Simulated assay, not measured.
Amino acid sequence: MNSWGEDLRTGDIKGDTLTDYIRPKPRPRSGYHRYQFRLYEQPVHQDITLSPEERVSLGPWALKKFVEKFHLGSPVASTQFLTKYYKE
């Protein structure tokens, strides 16, 4: 059995994609935007689903409500970055 996180480190990730990643696309002259990524360990035997609103949203949605609904607890890893319109 792999150690905790080994599959993530090696890219041998098993599971279902709930939504594809779409890169940030800040509008011109809108300044910097902060993006955050949080990684949660999925509880055993807990199916995670997205609501129709979460599935199509490119903006913020109720992360706290989502975390509580699926009993995700605290993130096991996180990162954030700033970006702005690519020509500025």
Rank of each mutant, 00 (worst) to 15 (best):
G11V: 03
Y86I: 04
F66M: 06
E41M: 13
R29P: 02
K87N: 12
S74H: 08
G59K: 12
H45N: 13
Q80K: 12
P28T: 10
S30W: 04
V76F: 05
T17V: 10
F70C: 05
V44C: 05
L50Y: 05
Y21E: 01
P43N: 08
S78P: 12
K25V: 00
P43V: 00
L58A: 03
K64Q: 04
D7P: 08
K14V: 13
A62L: 10
W61M: 15
Q36I: 15
W61V: 09
S74P: 04
G11D: 05
K69H: 14
L39N: 07
E88I: 00
N2G: 14
K64Y: 03
R9Q: 09
Q46W: 01
R38F: 01
L82H: 01
E6N: 10
G15E: 07
P24E: 02
W4L: 11
E88F: 03
R29M: 05
K64S: 06
L39M: 10
N2M: 13
L39I: 12
F66C: 10
E6K: 09
G15W: 04
I13H: 13
R9V: 05
S51M: 07
I13G: 11
L58Y: 11
P75R: 09
L18E: 09
M1S: 15
E53H: 07
Y35M: 13
F70S: 04
L82M: 08
M1P: 11
W61Q: 13
E54K: 08
D47G: 07
G73K: 06
D16F: 06
N2I: 14
T83R: 12
I22Q: 14
T19Y: 03
S78W: 11
H71R: 11
